[in-house]
Design a protein around this nucleic acid. Sequence first.
DNA 1: GCATCACTGAAACACTCGTGTCAGTGGAGG
DNA 2: CCTCCACTGACACGAGTGTTTCAGTGATGC
Lengths: 177, 177
Amino acid sequence: MPSARETELLEAAYRYVLTHGLADVSLRPLAAAIGSSTRVLLYLFGSKEGLVKALLARARADELALLADIGAGPGVVRRLWEWLAAPAHRPLLTLWLEAYARSLVEPDGPWAGFARATVEDWLEVLKTSQPEDVRDTADGLALRTRELALLRGALLDLLATGDGERVTAALATSLMP
Amino acid sequence: MPSARETELLEAAYRYVLTHGLADVSLRPLAAAIGSSTRVLLYLFGSKEGLVKALLARARADELALLADIGAGPGVVRRLWEWLAAPAHRPLLTLWLEAYARSLVEPDGPWAGFARATVEDWLEVLKTSQPEDVRDTADGLALRTRELALLRGALLDLLATGDGERVTAALATSLMP
DNA sequence: GCATCACTGAAACACTCGTGTCAGTGGAGG
DNA sequence: CCTCCACTGACACGAGTGTTTCAGTGATGC
């Protein structure tokens, strides 16, 4: 269990990487920005890898909190998209994509399994939102995989172009129950 | 116009980054792996940034060659997906995703505009594949944006899970003309 | 009062990084 | 032959990296 100071610094570091990216973060600038020192970060998190792992877990916690908040049932896709498209969430989602890509390129290290884990998290939510009688059928699996692909692909487009209008219009047919 | 030696080394470096990733490549290991030296890479490409830019352009050339090859007309989505799902193309696509994410995190530098550029490239291909009477309508734009999202989201899933069967099944309804 | 413990500061270590300097190669053209 | 020019090797420079060592703090609990 983390100490008070540890969660405090983790929170500050999390805010830092949301705007600076996680890929090429380095201890000294990070420590300076959050009013700490490399010595303390190393003391609390053991190593840089430990810190990155903690930050990734922190980001995942945000994601899981969202999924719990969204709930299940009809209209999930619409609610998920509304959340994804909100400008306030863009830094988090950019960070998410960064970690996703990284975990594919470098399957070892702190990133390991991140991409696969989020696919499964989301598929699970979509699954519990399906009517019971299709949940365990091949059609059900195909349908939620398709919904996930649509959301993620739309997100990619949105993050690159910022054109929320066009992308939301493209999803419109899926957003009507 | 690049010299013979330059394109030769670029090709070798391209093969290297396809397996090692582009994000944290460094000159010395790269030079050693392709039988060159940092001195020569710097001489030919001016700087590391120049080299990265050349590599990014090289990857994009692969992508554009594909798009030209696929052609236009009915069945594009199916043909595009067949190409995306081919295991042989996975390194290229992982590299593509890496560059995509990077260009969002770090809008300056050699990566600039990569994400936006590929969105436009692909939308263009999908557009010329649409029947003329919808090409310039709002519906046409929404439809191809949707197709692109589906393809890209499916690709994300595939790269993370490797589960080509499930993802292809999810796309099935879109793959039938 | 004293020991314990979480935390912190300063400085150093052993790297790796991109890049610059200076000196050559070898072959092609005059 | 001699000159030019694309290319290459060896090495050093300054900056930045994660990590370690050593030496403290200040508060808490006995």
